[in-house]
Nucleic acid binder design. Structure first.
Lengths: 230, 230
DNA sequence: ACCTGAACACCGTTCAAGT
DNA sequence: ACCTGAACACCGTTCAAGT
């Protein structure tokens, strides 16, 4: 069950912060939060814990750097295409983050941690900037910029985070947990709730089974965009 | 620096799942995620780890139960007042969750975990139901219920989560970290960003310093409500 | 300046044994 | 049925020592 190590022989290139962060992301992708340990990291990098601590202060900083690296890659893509409209630009940014969390489900929790606990770090401004540029292009007064950008960031990160597990199970080839089963189990559980306490949740349980995460995500985003430009 | 134990003598009441969850919430409130350990728990409950494992399966289940208990208390309050309008009802539910995260900052991360990894658990339907009831009272077609309720849940939890640290530092009497300083530091860091890379973020840095979390939260919520009822 | 690896304190969890 | 507490495997982190 343990991942086979690809390099138990001596490493050739020198260690670097970049190389360490790269390995951390790989471990997180492969086995989630619990997969990132200093022992797994030292094995993969063919080194000792002291070497890693020379380049990063502690595990928290390493998680922050891994989060920043993935977010930077996600929001850096968009300048490539010039959107038809500001609305389209916002959809592109939003989908970029949505897909980043889809590929790296551990990102959802880390994002919540980074944004709330370290707002002066690099992750928060990066996300704020890419959303904000599109907001500025929207036809809203300057005094509304901050509110609009905040609301969009909250919605996008909230939605992306909550879809993380769904999305991950959708591409996961691990036996026993595919997307249809996952949604089916949730829908079934919701339908068996107490009718007196949960009338609404029961009433929409069937829509849960049929819905598409991405469509749902974009539909909600459009509701917010409508409100902003109203 | 360690919290003084209140009961090192033998406990009088029998142990119960409820009592354990209650102690877990207290530890989480006092010292955050890191504060909840089985050792701290056994000391506080004057028992051994085996006794706790008789009532809960593992730490994950305990965190889930603590989260559910706090959320249940937060959303249970609202039937007491009957809202003037569905919009007002949604604001009440939203503020209830906002305040719960304000009082229990660890809730932000746990909510993200519960909602994404365990959607068939008790937390997700609880939140969905309290939002959904108000949505149903809104004048929107049945086919839009699910989208509207989802969008609201995403926004509310995303926003509440990202405000968690701000809010906590606002009431925290711990020396060196009060709310004004915290926001000031963030605003200052944003103003020193590279002008070429971060024009938007720099431009609104001063609004960060002056904004009120709760007003901002409600303003964003109203944008979404406008979009839903448009 | 950069790396090694043994050692430390602490963690979640188990389980034979008690009542 | 419920609880005890020693023990186990594993974790993040440190640090004297090497190059």
């Amino acid at each position: 069950m343990t991942t086979r190590t690809r390099r138990s022989q001596r490493r050739t290139e020198a260690l670097s912060r970049e190389r360490i962060v790269e390995a951390a992301v790989e471990l997180l992708d492969a086995a989630g939060e619990g997969g990132l340990t200093f022992r797994a990291l030292t094995e993969r990098l063919a080194t000792g814990p002291g070497a890693i601590y020379w380049h990063v202060a502690n595990k928290g900083e390493l998680l922050g750097a891994a989060t920043d690296a993935v977010v930077a890659a996600a929001v850096a893509l968009e300048p490539a295409v010039s959107p038809d409209s500001p609305q389209d630009g916002i959809r592109t940014v939003a989908l970029g983050l949505f897909e980043a969390i889809e590929e790296h489900p551990w990102l959802a929790t880390q994002l919540a941690l980074q944004l709330s606990r370290h707002p002066s770090g690099s992750v928060t401004p990066r996300i704020f900037e890419s959303i904000g540029r599109q907001v500025r292009a929207l036809d809203v007064p300057r005094s509304s910029w901050f509110t609009a950008a905040s609301a969009l960031a909250h919605y996008i990160l909230g939605a992306a985070g909550q879809n993380a597990a769904n999305a991950a199970s959708g591409r996961d080839p691990v036996p026993g947990v595919d997307r249809a089963e996952f949604l089916d189990a949730a829908a079934k559980a919701w339908q068996e709730l107490d009718p007196d306490d949960y009338p609404f949740t029961r009433a929409i349980a069937d829509q849960v089974r049929e819905h598409d995460d991405r469509e749902q995500f974009l539909a909600g985003l459009d509701l917010l965009l409508t409100g902003i430009t109203a």
